[in-house]
Simulated assay, not measured.
Amino acid sequence: MSVFDELAKNWDEKPLRVENARRIGQGIIDNIPVDKNWKVMDFGAGTGLLTFYIQPYVKEIDAIDNSKGMLEVLQEKVRKAGVSNINPVFKDLEKDELGSEEYDLVVSSMTLHHIKDVESLLRKLKKSLKEGGYIAIADLEEEEGDFHSDNKGVYHFGFSKEKMRGYFEKLGFKDIRLFTVNIINKNNKEYPVFLAIGRK
């Protein structure tokens, strides 16, 4: 059982977390020409805070996570909301393969710092995008390792915008844009969150 399985039940009760997903979602909608015919992947979807924000604007979303507990909460939210275009998918993207050229848009919120090999995951995500498709990844800007109270399963203390741009450029993404989309106030500190957008 992962630590996220245990956290899942109360995950949506933190206003900071809900507000962060809302700002990231709005940042995506405002900066990408999202279309009602699009198929989207939200990786590290958790309980679907970002998934639900994007859902009204697109045709279908595969909400992928490697925590069964998180996906159970998401499944229940989908059922209660009577939404038919969200597909919760149990998959470990670090180990499992993805299809090719399936998605018009890949999004992710606050997941990348839990991924060991960022470049190989981004390569996999790029492969899953259709030609001309977009990627939009939000995560913490570089921090000192005190954002999480416990750093188990945290492989990066955020990312500088330069480092993130470097990954996108190396993988050949075009129209790259990076900007601060939110600032989380906790531990008497400010933690900026970036949104990195690129196009295949």
Score class of each variant (00 low, 15 high):
K77W: 09
D65S: 06
M164C: 05
L71Q: 10
D35I: 02
K170R: 15
S128T: 07
D146H: 14
A21E: 07
N10G: 14
D146K: 15
F159Q: 09
K161D: 12
D117R: 07
E97L: 13
R177F: 07
L129S: 04
L121S: 07
T111C: 15
T111R: 08
I115M: 02
V89K: 05
Y103Q: 03
R23C: 07
I197N: 11
V3R: 13
I28H: 00
A138F: 10
V89P: 01
K77Q: 09
Q75W: 02
I32F: 06
K68F: 11
T180H: 07
A138M: 11
N187M: 12
G27P: 02
L49Y: 05
D5T: 07
E162W: 05
I24N: 02
E142R: 14
D65I: 10
F168Y: 15
V3E: 14
E94Y: 02
F168T: 10
L93R: 00
K59Q: 13
V106Y: 04
K116T: 10
L112Y: 06
L171W: 10
M1N: 09
M110W: 03
G27D: 01
G46A: 02
D117W: 00
R22L: 12
G153M: 11
V34P: 03
R199I: 03
M110Q: 13
G46T: 07
I64Q: 01
I197W: 09
K68V: 14
G166C: 04
L98V: 07
G44V: 08
I28V: 15
T51Q: 04
T47S: 13
L71E: 09
G198F: 08
V89H: 01
E94A: 12
E60C: 07
K77F: 09
V58M: 06
D35R: 12
L195S: 13
D96H: 03
E142C: 00
G99Q: 12
M110H: 02
D92E: 06
G99F: 10
K170Y: 13
K95P: 01
N20T: 15
S128R: 01
P56N: 10
D5Y: 06
E19I: 14
I61Q: 09
K186A: 09
A8M: 10
L93W: 00
K14T: 13
I24C: 07
S120W: 00
G153T: 11
P15N: 11
N66G: 04
E102M: 14
N10P: 00
K39F: 01
N151H: 02
G27T: 02
G133S: 09
E119P: 04
K36C: 06
F179W: 11
T111N: 01
D12E: 13
N85C: 08
